[in-house]
Nucleic acid binder design. Structure first.
Ligand SMILES: [Mn+2]
Ligand SMILES: [Mn+2]
Ligand SMILES: [Zn+2]
Ligand SMILES: [Zn+2]
Lengths: 129, 129
DNA sequence: TAGCATAATGATAACTGTTATCATTATCGT
DNA sequence: ACGATAATGATAACAGTTATCATTATGCTA
């Protein structure tokens, strides 16, 4: 039952107005640039609070956590190691097979994260140039 | 072309003799406890070198990187959020469908990581007790 | 509406995992 | 054995994140 304060509303609005995957630093910089007064600690706490309420989603990449809108259907991610571009995809069969694999091992699933690495269409071309 | 020094051989032997997923700290503690003289920086560099030569594998979990033997077939992981136990599984169909999903988005895949979270058989029982 | 309990804020310290620095030591080909 | 090259290890530095704590805002309740 965390509060939806002005700061948290600003974070939520920022994320909801985009299709990006934001890290904490990008969020605080965007808000400060937009004239808001907010500290990095508040952003970290706000992001955690919003996520715990299901208002935003997150993915944990190697170095840092990134947040995105929660009003999209579940999906997984492809990260381009060339330019950082993040592509989204969803695959019902993969999801179902994961559930089956967990079942077979006696696991009660609570979540999963599938990240694929590679080169996006654009970076792929630049490779063999 | 990194060298396989005594320290790196010790790291490799330790990992190859087990089925665990080791973090750097566990490795240095195990080696020091076994009488070896090795520093944490050397372990970090050794692990990176061994991985770059394909002699060990790694998975990047939320907080830290964990290393394991490379002489097993490719597999993915289920992590028990109750006790930390890591279960391995492999699923050819999931692998194939990933490749197909990447293709559809124009991605040239170089790798992937699928981690499932949940409760292992043991922790599951303790839950409804 | 004033008073109060409770929670959030923000500056900053602290912490964790990891990489960089640098003087010293080991390794390997000649 | 010599010398170039790479590895080692103690430790500083770094990045992302969480903890601390004094201050401020929020929302009940009387
Ligand atoms: Mn996404
Ligand atoms: Mn494994
Ligand atoms: Zn790209
Ligand atoms: Zn467990």
């Amino acid at each position: 039952m965390p509060k939806l304060t002005a700061q948290r509303q600003a974070i939520l609005d920022l994320i909801n107005a985009s299709n990006r995957h934001w890290d904490a630093d990008e969020v605080v910089r965007a808000l400060v640039d937009a004239g808001a007064s907010i500290g990095i600690a508040t952003v970290y706490r706000g992001l955690a609070a919003l996520e715990s309420q299901g208002l935003i989603d997150s993915i944990q990449l190697a170095d840092k956590k990134r947040y995105e809108r929660a009003d999209k259907a579940h999906h997984d991610h492809m990260v381009c190691t060339g330019c950082g571009h993040i592509e989204e995809f969803s695959h019902d069969t993969i999801e179902a097979l994961q559930e089956a694999a967990a079942e077979k091992k006696g696991f009660k699933l609570t979540g999963h994260q599938l990240v694929m690495f590679g080169f996006c269409r654009k970076c792929r071309q630049e490779l063999h140039t």
